[in-house]
Amino acid sequence: MAIVLLLQHRGQVTAAEVARELEISERTARRDLDALGTAGVPVYSVQGRGGGWRLVGGARTDLSGLTAGEARALFLAAGPASSATPALKAALRKLVHALPEPFRAQAEAAASSLVMDPRLWGSSRVEARPPRFLDELQDAAIRGVQVRLGYVDREGTETERTVHPLGIVAKGPSWYLVATTETGRRTFRIDRVSSADPTADPVHRPGDFDLAESWRAIADEVERRRTPLEARAMCTPHGIDVLRIGFGARLEVGGSTADGRIEVVIRGHDEHKLAGELAGLVDYLEVTGPPRVRDHLASIGNALTARYKPGAASSMEEHE
């Protein structure tokens, strides 16, 4: 795609120019140009001084009809830059070089204007239904223009303010706008937006702003408010990966102790529920506090011992 766009945009290119633009070797560029001809793309080489590669008769493909909006859509469909693989990031970088100059800035902005976070708050269930003003706000973030935003808070109070869109985040089924306002940086649930009117005024974007890093900080703060209880524990080294899988961002890993174990902190919503989550990790974990979590763990252990000790009748046998 990138080579065809280069041919269409420039008329003629050399293997050296393709190599330089797409950050590949000249040998790879020649091989890829030959492969285009084999695949049926009407390209041919002109030998001698001033030679290069051209499309037969100035032939063009559907790629030549890309509008600015379609170029942005292509980069959005390829996936947000924050979660792209190294190979995809390289491909997007190469493709951007082949786009007409007026399209490049918005195409690059599209690749960095979206973060996908599929996990629900406190759940693994994923659903999706894009909210009403998603397209308008995403377009404003990409174009870098301010928006007059109508917003209804959780109490049902509607307000209006001018915001500077910095990016869009998908969190499970919910979509969020990250923006700066007169009172600082704010996050808005897009399904609570009642109106979105783009203005002609440019967004004031902090030079060091990174949407993925900003969202991680926001999500961590929300998780801390949702899980205010902290249990302290000592974990064996081979149990750390188990904890990471089970608790994710709720786990904080500290330093090693004299006996080789690792200090950890695990956050939860309440003592009883957190003790239930920790009870099955006795092979890896020794909970050191708080006392109420240890008490709940002891109660769970006593109940399990009473239920499953040798000779204990099952509930089915008791009813028969």
Rank of each mutant, 00 (worst) to 15 (best):
A2G: 00
A2N: 01
I3G: 06
V4T: 15
R10H: 14
V13T: 02
T14D: 01
A16Q: 15
A16D: 14
V18G: 11
S25H: 07
R27I: 14
T28L: 14
D32A: 12
L36Y: 10
G37C: 03
T38N: 08
G40N: 05
V46W: 04
V46M: 08
Q47S: 14
Q47R: 15
G51F: 00
G52H: 04
R54N: 07
V56D: 13
V56C: 10
G58R: 00
G58D: 02
D62I: 00
D62W: 01
L63R: 05
G65L: 12
G65D: 10
L66F: 05
T67P: 01
E70R: 05
E70A: 14
A71L: 01
A71N: 00
R72Q: 13
R72V: 15
L76Q: 06
P80Q: 10
S82I: 09
A84Q: 15
A84R: 11
A87R: 11
K94L: 09
A98F: 00
L99T: 02
L99F: 04
P100V: 12
F103D: 12
A105E: 11
Q106V: 12
A107G: 06
E108D: 13
E108Y: 08
A109L: 02
D117Q: 09
P118R: 09
R119I: 10
L120H: 12
L120C: 12
W121T: 12
G122R: 07
G122K: 05
R125A: 11
P130G: 08
P131R: 03
F133C: 08
D135E: 13
E136H: 07
E136G: 08
L137Q: 05
L137I: 10
Q138I: 00
D139N: 09
G144I: 02
G144Y: 01
V147Q: 00
R148T: 08
G150R: 07
D153K: 05
R154M: 06
G156S: 02
E160W: 04
R161V: 08
T162C: 01
P165H: 13
I168N: 06
L177K: 02
V178A: 09
E182N: 12
G184V: 02
G184I: 03
G184D: 01
R185E: 13
F188P: 02
D191I: 03
R192H: 04
A196Q: 00
D197H: 09
P198A: 08
V203E: 10
H204W: 11
R205E: 14
G207W: 06
D208E: 12
D208V: 07
F209C: 09
D210Y: 08
R216M: 10
I218G: 06
I218H: 15
R226H: 14
T227S: 14
P228D: 00
E230T: 15
T236F: 06
P237C: 07
P237R: 07
D241C: 03
L243N: 05
T257M: 09
T257V: 08
V265C: 07
I266D: 03
E271C: 04
E271W: 07
K273V: 12
A275V: 06
A275K: 05
G280C: 05
D283W: 05
Y284V: 10
V287G: 04
V287T: 03
P290R: 05
R294C: 11
L297Q: 06
I300L: 15
I300R: 04
I300Q: 00
I300H: 03
I300E: 02
G301Y: 10
T305N: 11
T305G: 11
T305L: 13
K309D: 13
A312T: 13
A312W: 11
A313T: 14
M316K: 13
H319G: 10
E320S: 14
